[in-house]
Amino acid sequence: MAPRESALLDVEVAFALPERQRIIPLAVPDGTTARQAVEMARLEEAFPELPPATFREADLGIFGRRLRDQDSRVLRAGDRVEVYRPLQLDPKAARSARAGRGKD
């Protein structure tokens, strides 16, 4: 009997900038983590203007829910891994600045 090949799962990796987005479909081996799928998607080639660390260090989520165990979360068939951009401005600081301008 031949050894059984590892099953492949269909997943997607998504990343967006304000002006464009990419959703990359992948067939990954069973047992692939969310972080590994991001590496396989090679987003640095689709977004050469960003440093590669953007994708290696980004927070990740699946269907809008941030992952706590980003480096160990094993994917399931149909998952869409989302790569989140860091905030440019802290929302609390932005609200405080707006409130301060309003008191002039």
Results as ranks from 00 to 15, higher is better:
100 G>L: 11
16 A>I: 10
35 R>C: 02
84 Y>S: 01
85 R>F: 07
81 V>P: 00
83 V>L: 11
28 V>A: 04
28 V>W: 02
63 F>V: 10
52 P>F: 03
7 A>Y: 09
97 A>C: 03
2 A>G: 09
9 L>I: 09
71 D>F: 04
89 L>T: 00
6 S>V: 14
64 G>P: 14
4 R>D: 05
85 R>N: 05
23 I>S: 08
100 G>C: 01
35 R>F: 04
87 L>K: 02
58 A>R: 11
36 Q>N: 06
16 A>C: 09
19 E>V: 07
92 K>Y: 00
77 A>V: 05
94 A>F: 09
100 G>F: 03
62 I>F: 05
79 D>K: 06
21 Q>G: 09
53 A>F: 08
31 G>D: 08
55 F>A: 02
67 L>M: 11
91 P>M: 04
101 R>K: 15
14 A>W: 11
17 L>V: 11
95 R>A: 03
46 A>N: 08
103 K>Q: 15
5 E>Y: 05
51 P>N: 07
50 L>F: 14
87 L>G: 01
65 R>N: 08
70 Q>G: 09
18 P>Q: 13
6 S>R: 15
69 D>N: 12
24 I>Y: 08
1 M>Q: 13
83 V>N: 00
12 E>V: 09
102 G>T: 04
97 A>S: 11
57 E>K: 15
103 K>S: 14
100 G>K: 12
62 I>S: 06
41 A>H: 05
11 V>A: 06
63 F>Y: 15
75 L>S: 03
17 L>I: 11
83 V>Q: 00
12 E>W: 14
60 L>E: 01
79 D>R: 06
100 G>R: 15
59 D>E: 05
82 E>G: 01
70 Q>I: 04
97 A>W: 12
35 R>T: 05
3 P>G: 07
96 S>D: 12
72 S>H: 10
92 K>I: 00
92 K>A: 00
2 A>V: 11
37 A>W: 01
70 Q>D: 04
59 D>F: 04
62 I>N: 03
62 I>V: 15
56 R>K: 15
104 D>I: 09
5 E>F: 10
99 A>T: 13
34 A>G: 09
25 P>A: 05
63 F>I: 08
4 R>C: 09
78 G>K: 12
80 R>T: 13
6 S>H: 07
27 A>V: 05
20 R>S: 07
84 Y>T: 01
13 V>I: 09
63 F>G: 14
79 D>G: 04
30 D>E: 15
13 V>K: 03
17 L>P: 03
58 A>P: 11
3 P>H: 13
14 A>G: 09
45 E>V: 10
69 D>T: 10
35 R>V: 01
17 L>G: 07
50 L>M: 15
39 E>C: 04
83 V>A: 01
23 I>A: 07
97 A>V: 08
45 E>Q: 15
10 D>F: 07
60 L>Y: 02
36 Q>G: 05
8 L>F: 11
60 L>I: 08
